[in-house]
Design a protein around this nucleic acid. Structure first.
Lengths: 200, 200, 200, 200
DNA sequence: ACGAGCGGGACCCCCCGTTGAT
DNA sequence: ATCAACGGGGGGTCCCGCTCGT
């Protein structure tokens, strides 16, 4: 039981990790602090040293997710090609992202549900959403400028993209076996793209 | 304290109503049975006579919502005109429906969050979703048959419609002031329709 | 385990009694609700059915004490004789009262200590104190009117009486073996009376 | 983080000071060690280096208060004049003392309450009380010897003085706005003196 | 069909004290 | 001498569900 100063981050990380698993598995309310601590192998004293409350660790989790998402977005967004191609590439990235974080999906719904009631969480959850939308809006604007999209309302376009993404996401979460979500996503995206493309 | 047989349904209804308000306002977990009872003006004895548990009244609520939704869908779906027109008409109906039940929207997210964890609730919540999708699929099939839509994958088409609808819905719930959701919805729908229409 | 409606008061009384014992014995803060419940032989459910909080039962206790005190005061105050005689009679009553409630004395100090920090309790604790003072002031006023006391400031006189009483009380609580409090009290009172008497 | 040997006393003093403020402001039980440390700007490690426990710092505080009181008593007691005059002079000193330490008054009640339960604290709190009483007894003895007081029981006389003082003190603490305590105190003292004076 | 009262069981929070390291 | 980090252990609160009694 060393007390290295490096131990600090280790404990904090294991708490965050345990909390993510518990929240995802049973929901925010159904998860007890004691459970998180057991799961992380630390004491409640350690928990409340690192986080002020259960809500605090939840928000910390949301913020960590935000950062990860942003990085993933940035790395995915800067590909070459026309706007439609880039969108299709995004689709694949999106799929990868969902599959790679299968376990965290439930956590995201948890974020959502809590956010609808708690302004502090709402702030945190809304941010990445908006950055997503800005990204889409920019991309569609590019597409219109380069002539591959008709001159539609770019903001509305971003909105559709985002709504489609989140809608598919939530459905996939609730009904995992309902369809082949990977191919469904692509089909949906193609229909949408057809609605925006200038050539036809 | 009459023993009117009619009293029974009255109490039950007032419990359901109170539960709907409480769940919508504070969430499932944060709402206590005692609170529902206070809100309905009855005692816990009455509650547990009518419902086996807190979850039971939640499911009863979901089922009632399902029925209402189904009726609303049926009455909205059987309008005259071409498939695209009927979809646009749906959009308006959808808007009306959202606005008229402003208060219950939070409840739906609550259903969703619970459903992702509880199979019993999942069954109930998923059902109207699928009936929605079937409706859309049928409508798109009609559109293809009558020539107003290109021969796209009807199932995928239904999926986009549904995803778009739920995506817009969730965003509107989380970010009520983020946009003029009424006009946004229509713009989005038009883009989507353009992606499916045969004439262009 | 009957559920007679009479059982209600029984439970409530046993809770109040247990709380009085615990608070007196270990202090307000050191006493746990669980301890009170164990001591009363009821569950925490019962406790929180009857009282909203630990503070609530504490206040209820203070109020009960107030009522008792008031009755005791009234029964003691209406004796015959001159004002000085009545004061001396009071002294004896006071002694009886202290001795008969030996166990509650610590509770009163507890009231005091809590009252200095909590306005809600302060209100309750201050009330009997003032009624005591009013009583003394009236009595001294009578004495001045009948000529047995010099025309001193009746309010100040009431104040001395009260201060003397409470001072003796607190000392007796803290230092039970320090003196023969019964005779000390009388001696003190006589000195005080000599300061107010007109004849000398 | 120097290793100055002077640093030691500095830390100790700031802990004592912080503890006094916290205890006075919120009470012994409601004050956490962490709070004291924050308030003093040191960590718990430092606290537990200087004091063995929360109770230990409380006792240290009481002892410091005792010393201060004793000094204040000695400096006030050795004035010239007759016994009654010296008592009246005391009254003024008493008033000054109360007003100058306004903030610590609550702390004294805290001492009292704890003392009634904890023998260790009781010893410490009782000591200055007795030295007060001895002082009064001596003073009254002087007064009797010099003929300004009637030959009353000096011990009882000291008791009245002390009871009056502590009674007024506690009332003033609980009901700060209830009266003009400064003039009330003097009036009370005069009544008492009249009870002891030989001339009349 | 409904009401009052009660039984336990955690949950979140926080707290006191310690320990390895400096 | 001081500190960050941590170990456990309840504290008050409240909740869900049951059981009598009507």
């Amino acid at each position: 039981m060393k007390r290295n100063p490096a131990r600090r981050e280790e404990t904090r990380a294991s708490l965050l990790d345990a909390a993510a698993r518990c929240f995802a598995g049973q929901g925010y309310d159904a998860t007890g602090v004691a459970e998180i601590c057991d799961c992380a192998g630390v004491s409640k004293g350690a928990f409340y040293y690192h986080f002020a409350s259960k809500q605090a660790i939840f928000i910390a989790l949301a913020e960590a997710w935000l950062v990860e998402l942003d990085e993933s977005l940035n790395s995915a967004g800067y590909v070459e090609g026309s706007a439609p191609d880039r969108l299709l590439a995004m689709s694949a990235k999106f799929q990868e992202l969902l599959e790679s974080q299968q376990e965290r999906l439930a956590l995201i719904l948890e974020f959502w549900a809590q956010a609808s009631r708690n302004p502090a969480i709402q702030q945190v959850v809304l941010a990445p959403y908006r950055s997503f939308q800005d990204f889409f809006v920019g991309l569609i604007g590019d597409g219109i400028a380069e002539g591959s999209f008709r001159p539609i309302d770019a903001v509305a376009g971003g909105q559709v993209m985002l709504s489609l993404a989140s809608g598919l996401f939530f459905q996939g979460l609730l009904d995992p076996m309902g369809a082949d979500w990977s191919s469904t996503t692509e089909k949906c995206l193609r229909i949408l793209l057809d609605g925006m493309r200038s050539d036809k």
